[in-house]
Amino acid sequence: MIEAIGLTKRYGTTVAVDDLSFTIAPGRVTGFLGPNGAGKSTTMRMILGLDRPTSGKALIDGKSYAQLDRPLRTVGALLDAKWVHPNRSAKAHLQWLAKSNGLPDRRVGEVLDMVGLTAVAKRRAGGFSLGMSQRLGIAGALLGDPQVLLFDEPVNGLDPEGILWIRQFMQSLAAEGRTVLVSSHLLSEMAVTAQDLVVIGKGKIISQGSTTEFIEKATENSVLVRSPHLSKLGPLLVDKGYTVRNDDDGALTVVGATSDQIGDIAGANGVVLHELSPQRGSLEQAFMQLTGDSVEYHAEIGK
């Protein structure tokens, strides 16, 4: 279990992380979601004792990272796949990590097998592709067979096969009862990976809960209606209290009603319908709506 209690990090006058509190439960993949620059990496680094919080604290199974004895046995982390000396072999990289936490040398071979790098174990890590580096980073995280795992943007820059592999891997780790926290700036990726979401923007918590709830809440449900008698149907729907928008191409978008309700109203009033289709707002739109005000750098589109 990971707990953040009032976690805050200031750099001069800039507040990177602003009073974050959350709890990450075991047995589930929790997505840590937010636009770039929202403070995800800084938060993870504070959880791992790399950066010192300005105030507040982060606990792993009730202890701060520095209090953990042989921390790799409790926590595994992949923050940046490039944190490897380029002239050191993959095997040597894992060997010193294993040694530092009193893990047996055979564990190095085991984790190399798990991530499929056994064949290239003796090659220098600097020559690895991004996908291979990512696998090496995951091998390092798994070395101590930890109950808590943190991954920072693990699918960034990976090919579809690599993305699928990491996704299934994280899910299987959670299924074994481990705590898995994975950060991402892509809601679509998190929607298929994480069961729970902690969403932040500009260092503040925006939402916390299950992924399905978040998507339900965030996406606007509307129904597209086409009919030769829109001028008759529109006022009827407005009378029922639904929000109705006239689209440019002669259709109506109705918000707040299900397609069943609209069909019933149309039928009861003898209105012919040519189309009645429920619309689901895209995840990216929903995410943008929620975090829109908290994106650090805006790009002005279409000006």
């Binding site: 791992l48 990272y65 520095a66 926590v75 490897v84 000396h85 990590l97």
Partner: peptide, 18 residues
């Protein structure tokens, strides 16, 4: 300095928080 340059110092401090 190479540990700082390649970020392995962070891997080191994760493995040995002291």
């Amino acid at each position: 300095t190479t540990e700082y340059r390649f970020g392995t110092i962070r891997a080191t401090f994760l493995a040995v928080p002291g």
